[in-house]
Structure formats: C-alpha cells, structure tokens
Lab assay of single mutants.
Amino acid sequence: TTLTVNTQTYTFTSEEEAREFARRYGAKTIRKTNGTWEVHG
C-alpha cells in the first residue's frame, strides 16, 4: 500500500507525533508554524 501526500498538510501539536508520522509515511518536510508542527508530503 502506498500513501501519496503531494499537496496535503498534516498538523500536529507535538514534534514527536509529527516526526513519527513523517517517518511512517515518508513525508519530506517537517515545519513548526505558530506553535504547531506541519508535515508536508
């Protein structure tokens, strides 16, 4: 199964959650914005 996250942004309140998600789905960018963490595919 392949998950494609081209134009979607996922927002997390903790860096740990964001990094775990990025690691699991191979997202390329993690960015902190206004106190939340954004993961970009």
Rank of each mutant, 00 (worst) to 15 (best):
T4Y: 07
T1S: 12
T9G: 06
K32S: 07
G35A: 03
T7P: 10
A27E: 03
V39W: 01
R19Y: 10
T29A: 15
R19Q: 08
E20T: 05
Y10H: 08
T9R: 10
R24I: 09
K28Y: 10
F21I: 01
F21M: 03
E16N: 07
E38N: 02
T29S: 09
T9V: 15
K28M: 13
W37M: 01
F12T: 00
I30K: 03
E16D: 09
R19F: 08
L3A: 13
I30F: 05
T2Q: 13
T29L: 15
G35M: 03
I30D: 02
T13W: 08
S14I: 04
G26L: 04
T36D: 05
R23G: 05
T33V: 15
A27G: 15
R23V: 06
G26S: 05
E16R: 09
A22C: 09
K32Y: 15
E15I: 05
F21C: 12
V39D: 00
T11I: 14
W37Y: 04
T2G: 13
Y10E: 02
N6S: 11
F21T: 01
L3G: 14
E15P: 02
W37T: 01
L3N: 14
T4H: 13
E16Q: 10
A22F: 04
G41Y: 14
R31Y: 10
T4S: 11
R19K: 10
H40R: 12
H40F: 14
F21K: 01
A27F: 15
T33Y: 07
G41T: 15
V5I: 09
A27R: 05
T2P: 12
K28I: 14
F12N: 00
R23S: 07
Y25G: 02
Y10P: 03
F21S: 01
Y10R: 06
E20F: 04
E38Y: 07
A22K: 01
E20D: 09
T9I: 15
G26I: 02
S14F: 03
F12Q: 00
A18M: 02
E38L: 08
E15D: 02
A18V: 00
A22S: 02
V39T: 02
T36N: 08
E17Y: 02
T7A: 09
G41Q: 10
W37K: 00
T29H: 10
G41L: 15
N34H: 03
G35W: 02
K32A: 09
T33I: 14
E16Y: 08
G35R: 01
T11G: 03
T4D: 14
H40T: 15
T1N: 13
G35I: 01
R31L: 11
T4K: 10
T4Q: 12
K32D: 03
G35P: 01
E17T: 04
E38P: 01
W37N: 00
R19G: 03
A27M: 15
G35D: 07
L3P: 14
R19T: 07
R19L: 12
N6F: 10
G26R: 05
V5P: 14
R31V: 11
Q8I: 12
R23D: 07
K32N: 11
T33G: 10
R24V: 07
T33Q: 10
S14K: 04
F12G: 00
T2L: 10
H40E: 14
T1E: 13
E17P: 00
G41I: 15
T29Y: 14
K32Q: 11
A22W: 03
W37L: 01
N34E: 06
A18Y: 01
Y10G: 02
A27V: 08
T13I: 08
N34Q: 04
G26M: 04
A22D: 01
L3S: 14
N34V: 02
V39I: 04
T11W: 09
K32M: 12
R24G: 03
E15K: 03
V39Y: 01
T33S: 12
Y25S: 08
T7S: 10
T33H: 10
T7I: 12
R23W: 05
I30T: 06
I30S: 03
L3F: 06
A27Q: 06
R24F: 05
N6L: 14
L3H: 14
Q8E: 09
A18N: 00
G41W: 15
Q8P: 09
T13L: 10
T7K: 07
T11H: 07
E17I: 03
W37F: 04
E20Q: 07
V39G: 01
E15Q: 04
